[in-house]
């Protein structure tokens, strides 16, 4: 059975026994247990130039206040979308990753609402 971490050796006492730290826990590093953290899968390629590829897993946070230039996950007409948030004058708009779509204003009237701000991205390459 496992449980051996470099400490409890049977013959010679492990000189490292007082310095056991355990393996790195990415869930902890990404702070995924925080109640405001959610993983979100990317479907689409318009943010490739910003380094976000299809199938990447975003770590998003619903408690972070998005600012000008933040990447956000927002609901746009009933769909969840990754977009860039920009401020023009007093108004906030969602901008597309590749400039192919016109910006939309963040407003209840246009059914656009920010869901969370992106705080990290995880990619498994194999």
């Amino acid at each position: 059975m496992s449980g051996y971490a470099g400490d409890r050796t049977t013959g010679f006492a492990s000189p490292a026994a007082d310095d056991i730290e355990g393996p790195i826990d990415l869930s902890e590093a990404l702070d995924l247990r925080r109640p405001s953290r959610y993983p979100v899968r990317v479907s689409g390629a318009t943010f490739a130039a910003r380094g976000i590829l299809p199938d990447d897993v975003l770590v998003v946070d619903t408690s972070v206040t998005a600012v000008h230039g933040s990447l956000v996950v927002a609901s746009v007409a009933g769909r969840s979308m990754l977009a860039e948030l920009r401020k023009t004058g007093r108004r906030w708009h969602l901008h597309s990753g590749d400039g192919c779509r016109p910006p939309v204003e963040v407003a209840e009237s246009s059914d656009v609402e920010i869901w969370a701000a992106v705080t990290g991205v995880v990619r498994l390459v194999v």
Binding site: Y38, P39, V40, R41, V42, S43, G44, A45, T46, F47, I52, V57, L58, V73, A74, V76, R79, S80, M81, L82, A83, E84, L94, H95, S96, G97, R101
Partner: peptide
């Protein structure tokens, strides 16, 4: 099964 977001 996590939430999926399209790219705008």
């Amino acid at each position: 099964e996590i939430m999926v977001a399209g790219t705008f």
